Simulated assay, not measured.
Amino acid sequence: MVKMILKRLAQSIPMIITISIVSFLLIRVAPGDPVRALVTPESSFEDIERIREAMGLNDNYLVQYARWAKAVLQGDFGYSFSNHRPVLEQIVERLPQTLGLMVSALIISLVIGTIIGIISAMNNGGIFDKIFTFLSYVGISIPSFWFAMILIHILSLKLGWLPSIGMRTLGVETTADLIKHSIMPVLTLSISDTATISRYVRARVVSELKEDYVMTEKAQGFSKTDLFFKSILKNSLLPIITILGMGLPRLISGAFITESIFGWPGLGQLGMNAIFKYDYPLIMATTMFASLLLIFGNLLSDILYMIVDPRIKEAQ
């Protein structure tokens, strides 16, 4: 397993370099000028050029990238153009909020999706199966931003059950208040993965129920509980890990949209605000950290693969 982890880490280095180069170039060629946010109508051309020179924007792209990459390798992500605070400090402040949102959504998706998939498979062709199948198609197809707006309109504006924005109520530091604020963002972030997992679990369980070993174990007197949990469910776990690995990019990109809509103070909101302010150092930092989260998630998915299926471990 250690050999596999080291191999995956080595393979991720060219990927990280490529992501950094592409992101750097896209940011630089995009319309907009960060200097304009720092000048006043009274600023002269000389003043603007001095600011541009101080920000290092007069050098060619190769020099700018080399300077940025050298600083990052030393652990220095620079200072924000918009608020002049260390970029790494802001990332560290916001990262736990994003991770908490993503992990909560992932757990909700896994638990609810698996339960729905199992119930649907055990009632194959029945009324529950048809209802859950319809709902899963809706969950897969519905745009997350539209679903977020619907939740805010119904649960917050109409019914007044949940707060519509932020992570905490001002002056309130209770766990209950945090949970109330997180319900709608977590639901928005988890709906697509919940629907996808439920479909895959249903298909896998239905397929496993038709296997010969199920009939053999039934004939040997295995109880339904032992048969299901020790054999069928275990053999159905591998596709779930596949879906979780495939869903990580959607989860990370969805966090950016969800955090912006609900005012959740995480990495996604920080990155979106940086984009609107042309804050190059902050945009690069959030992009790289999001990429690292994705790479780490895929590595974790590979490790889980080997735990569930020892044959993969032997093939490494």
Score class of each variant (00 low, 15 high):
Ser136Ile: 02
Ser190Phe: 10
Thr242His: 06
Ser198Lys: 02
Gly32Pro: 08
Glu211Ile: 01
Phe132Trp: 08
Ala274Ser: 09
Ser156Glu: 07
Ser43Trp: 11
Pro239Tyr: 14
Lys230Met: 12
Arg36Cys: 00
Pro143Tyr: 04
Thr133His: 10
Trp146Val: 15
Ser109Ile: 11
Lys158Ala: 12
Met102Gly: 12
Asp212Arg: 09
Arg50Asp: 06
Ile241Thr: 13
Gln11Gly: 15
Leu293Trp: 12
Lys180Leu: 11
Lys130Glu: 09
His181Cys: 07
Glu49His: 10
Asn124Trp: 12
Lys277Trp: 06
Met1Pro: 06
Thr242Met: 09
Leu170Ile: 14
Ile19Gln: 04
Ala105Gln: 05
Thr287Trp: 05
Met306Pro: 01
Ile312Lys: 03
Arg94Val: 10
Leu178Asp: 01
Asp59Ser: 14
Pro249Arg: 05
Arg36Glu: 13
Lys130His: 14
Gly247Lys: 13
Glu53Gly: 03
Glu173Ile: 11
Leu99Trp: 11
Gln220Pro: 00
Ile283His: 01
Leu238Cys: 03
Asp76Arg: 06
Thr169Asn: 06
Pro249Tyr: 12
Lys313His: 08
Ala30Leu: 13
Ser291Asp: 05
Asp33Ile: 08
Val138Tyr: 06
Pro143Phe: 04
Trp264Ile: 03
Ser156Cys: 14
Asn60Gln: 08
Thr258Pro: 07
Leu227Trp: 10
Met288His: 08
Lys224Tyr: 09
Thr287Ile: 15
Lys158Asn: 14
Ser44Val: 09
Ile17Ala: 14
Arg168His: 09
Asp279His: 12
Gln97His: 14
Ser82Pro: 01
Lys7Tyr: 13
Asn235Gly: 09
Val29Thr: 10
Ile243Thr: 12
Ala219Pro: 02
Leu300Phe: 14
Gly32Ala: 10
Ile116Pro: 03
Ser44Lys: 09
Lys234Gln: 11
Val2Gly: 15
Gly117Leu: 13
Gly100Pro: 02
Leu95Val: 10
Leu155Phe: 15
His153Ser: 14
Leu233Asp: 03
Val205His: 02
Ile295Lys: 09
Ile303Gln: 08
Asp193Asn: 10
Gln220Ser: 08
Gln74Ala: 13
Leu95Glu: 03
Ile131Lys: 04
Ile191Leu: 15
Thr194His: 02
Ser82Gly: 00
Gly117Glu: 07
Glu208Gly: 00
Glu208Phe: 02
Lys218Ser: 07
Val172Leu: 06
Gln74Asn: 13
Met167Ala: 14
Met167Thr: 00
Pro249Ile: 13
Ser23Asp: 07
Phe276Arg: 13
Leu110Ala: 14
Leu25Met: 15
Phe134Leu: 15
Val308Pro: 04
Met288Asn: 07
Thr133Phe: 12
Glu89Tyr: 03
Pro310Cys: 05
Thr194Phe: 08
Asp226Pro: 01
Ser156Arg: 05
Arg28Glu: 12
